[in-house]
Design a binder for these strands. Structure first.
Lengths: 219, 219
DNA sequence: GCCATTACGCTACGACTCGTAGCGAAAGCT
DNA sequence: AGCTTTCGCTACGAGTCGTAGCGTAATGGC
């Protein structure tokens, strides 16, 4: 978050209710208007606060939208499905479910676009969204190694690069499929994607499917 | 493009020079100002045309930027490098080189974000950028099958799905790496990515590298 | 060569948003 | 109490938007 009441200070504390109301109003405005037509005056009206109150807490539209969108991604979890393939599919489908919500779609892409010319904004996005969700990749890899599905990586630096690579592939593919190709990320797509990610293009032949863990019902 | 002079009409034809001047001015403005601070009045001044001339040809900022950015992607080519891996690396590096240009970065992401709430705009992007570049995937796969690096896909519908999947993975990963993670797509990253794409995560162990075509100098 | 037609540059306009400033009132802490 | 900070409200200049109207320039048809 950005607006903790300065701890040891005196005076009237900032209303926490206003914070949540503003962020919720921002998401609602994103749904109805999209990023470009969203105005801070409109958000203020929806939230039932004065426009000046928003400007006292956030530097501008970009920072506000980042905070409003970041909250959406905290609900991501990595269910232990028993196999690496099922774990990946689960996360992909969860991620896709979030991106299916219009407030996430229009908000996320727009602030990323703005961050290209604003280093502080990019760092804010990295800290509050991207870096936080890499935990999923880390945990998934850790489980897979314990199960023997992936060879352990002794080199720490190399391991970090691999985590970044996987994150870019997974997040990038889901985002591209959802927002650019505008096609749904359904169970079938998630299965095909996972197959390529695990076995490579050469492994997408039909006979290769059996080589992976037998994919029964999700028990 | 969008503004061909209506062929059989009478009257003064539209200046083709103005078209190119406007698109070039748009890219220049994207570099200096980014998308959100780009104004059509400014573009008009840079291009040496009247603001009303731009409004006569494009419906608004979004459509103009799409056309200005689309031209950048037409220079993509698929060099025949001899192996599928080298072909993929080549395209990845070319794509990354385009995304390294600031006019592509800020422009592309912003219009994609806007397209979420504008179906006509999304279709314009699909037609003038996405669909056009899928030729690269098609040709790469075709070559790989001729070389025997990939099994031929008899089912046409399944093949189309695979092309879409690969395109989402490649383009998504490069875009995410470049614009979200804000890390460079260099030769090393391209190599690692290609390895995962071809062999899967399980194939990233060191000994697996020799299993693929021996990667000598790019001969 | 003349005329109808269309594009162009220019100016001006109302409507809207931006971000800030100033005010009195409210809500805490000591 | 008294002090401090936040809050809601109003008002403001600056800037952008998209459009309309004008006179002029460049074509094709006759």
């Amino acid at each position: 978050m950005q607006s903790r009441t300065p701890a040891g200070r005196t005076g009237r504390p900032r209303s926490a209710a206003a914070d949540t109301a503003i962020l919720a109003a921002t998401r609602a405005a994103l749904v109805e208007l999209g990023w470009s037509k969203l105005t801070l005056g409109d958000v203020a009206t929806r939230a039932g606060v004065a426009k000046t109150t928003i400007y006292r807490r956030w530097a501008g539209k970009n920072e506000l939208v980042v905070d409003a969108v970041a909250e959406l991604f905290d609900e991501l979890e990595l269910p232990d499905s028993g196999t690496l393939a099922a774990d990946i599919e689960g996360v992909v489908l969860q991620f896709a479910a979030i991106l299916a919500r219009p407030e996430a779609r229009s908000g996320l892409m727009s602030v990323v676009a703005e961050s290209i010319r604003d280093d502080a904004l990019r760092e804010r996005i990295r800290a509050s969204i991207v870096q936080r969700q890499k935990r999923l990749v880390l945990e998934g890899r850790c489980r897979a190694e314990r199960r023997g599905e992936l060879p352990p990586e002794p080199n720490a630096e190399e391991a970090a690069r691999t985590v970044d690579l996987i994150f870019d592939i997974v997040a990038g593919a889901v985002v591209h499929r959802t927002l650019v190709s505008a096609e749904p990320v359904d169970a079938e797509w998630a299965r095909s994607f996972t197959q390529v990610l695990l076995l490579g293009l050469a492994g997408t032949a039909d006979d290769a499917r059996a080589a992976q863990a037998p994919r029964g019902p999700r028990t």
